[in-house]
Every structure is written in C-alpha cells, then in structure tokens.
C-alpha cells in the first residue's frame, strides 16, 4: 500500500535519512523502531509531504506522492497523528473535528464519521465546546486521533502516541488502535515503548542514524537479542 524506495533526506549538509526503503501492506500494522534522533519523525514527515526527499520515491497505492503538498496526500487517505499532537490551543474540540473533515474523500457522511469518533472517545463528546488548550494530555491525544480520523484515512501514521500518557490512558490508546485497525485502516506506528508497539504490530523496521538496519516480523523482533538489549532494556 505504501512503499518507500531509497529515500534520502538532508537538513543542510546533515543527512537525516539515507537510502531508506520500506513497505507497509494493506491491512497491516507496522512499527518503526529507533532511538531518539534516528530519523523516525523525519521519515513520517517525509511521507506526509512536510519534507521533500533529496532522492528516492514514495508510492502510495502505486502512485508517487513524494512531490505532493500535505493536503493532497491527506486527500488520498494517508493521514498522520503527529508527535506532540500539534493541536490548535484556542480552537474548540468541534472546530478541530470540522477542520479535520474538510479534506475527507469518503462515502461515509460527516455525521457518521463524527458519531464513530465520539463513540470511540466518548470524552470528546462531553468536551465538544471546550478549547483544545484546556484539555488534559490524554484528551488531547484522543482529539489528535479524532481529528485525523475525520479525514477518513485508509492509512494512519501515529508518531509517539503514548508519549506523556498515564498507564490507563496507554491501555485505552492500544484498544483504540486495535479498533481502528479492525475497521480496515492500515497503520504505521512509531513508538518509544517498543514492547507496546511490537505487541500491536505485525512487522517492524529498526532505524539507526537514518538507515534501516533490521526488518522482521514482530514476533522475531521481540525475541531478537539486539532489540532486547537496545530497546527493551532486558
């Protein structure tokens, strides 16, 4: 469904990604693992069109998207829930959901998608007139996911969704990811908590200083000694 071939990204003279190739098949949950600064967020930003790769190709459902602006990529159904949520503090919950929907290309009407999101995250229904800046961290993460879901994604990228969340919230988030996946959304998740990511995912890639160093199924990665020592702390 999504394919990266030999992606290079440079910040000035610094290489952030070097020859990154990876693919995510329809219906999969795939995770991208790596330490801080390995280039995970850069990879997601490149896929969303915020950064243009210096070399390589990105294909979504067979078509190149690496020269498209972000809103055109979203229209195709490739949507990201960014690290740090990037909400609009002075706008209400409903305004976020409205705005999230304006690029959606879906047979499902607006109200149906809204109902789906509000039943997934009932707290958002209660807080619909509240400004995003006044929500708790967990509620903000739900709003960020809700905003992305309003765009009717067929492929959802989540960047560090559990960051700063209480354990209860993390469980809720894991459930939500499974529910979204069950509804037919393909998922690529970047997560500091590698155990959580691998328990959700079918496959995983490991990124080190801008290069993919390991690619394997989630089960085998969980038992891989290198992963255990570097990321699971065992």
């Amino acid at each position: 469904m999504l394919e990266l071939v030999g992606i290079d990204v440079r910040y000035g003279h610094k290489r952030a990604l070097e020859g990154v190739s990876m693919r995510v098949n329809q219906g999969e949950i795939v995770t991208l693992i790596g330490s801080n600064g390995a280039g995970k967020t850069t990879a997601l930003k490149t896929m969303s069109g915020l950064i243009r790769p210096a070399a390589g190709e990105i294909r979504f459902e067979g078509e190149r998207i690496d020269r498209l602006p972000p809103h055109r990529i979203i229209e195709r159904g490739l949507v990201q829930v960014p690290e740090g949520r990037l909400l609009f503090p002075d706008m209400t919950v409903m305004e976020h959901l409205d705005l999230g929907a304006h690029r959606a290309r879906s047979d499902q009407p607006f109200s149906a998608r809204l109902d789906g999101i509000l039943s997934l995250f009932p707290i958002l229904a209660e807080r619909r007139a509240q400004k995003a800046g006044t929500l708790s961290g967990g509620q903000q993460q739900m709003l960020a996911i809700g905003r992305a879901l309003m765009a009717a994604p067929r492929f959802l990228m989540l960047d560090e969704p559990s960051l700063g969340l209480a354990p209860v919230m993390v469980d809720l988030l894991a459930d939500a990811i499974r529910t979204m996946h069950a509804s037919g959304i393909t998922i690529l998740v970047v997560e500091q908590r590698v155990d959580l990511a691998l328990s959700l995912a079918d496959r995983g890639y490991v990124l080190e200083t801008g290069r993919i160093v390991i690619e394997d199924s989630a089960d085998r990665l969980l038992s891989d000694s290198r992963i255990k020592s570097a990321y699971l702390g065992i």
Binding site: S48, L50, P70, L86, D90, M91, L99, R103
Partner: peptide, 25 residues
Amino acid sequence: TTFGRMMRATAQNPEGAALTGVDIR
C-alpha cells in the same frame, strides 16, 4: 467559516494545520 478555521489553525500551529489538510499556501 471553514476558511476562517483554516486561518486560525495556521496561526496557532502551522505544521498541525498542514497535517490537518489545510493548504498553507
């Protein structure tokens, strides 16, 4: 209006706006 929401979203978080499908240009 929707355009007004786009403007405010861009003002408050340009990158978040772009990832919400706002055509920044």
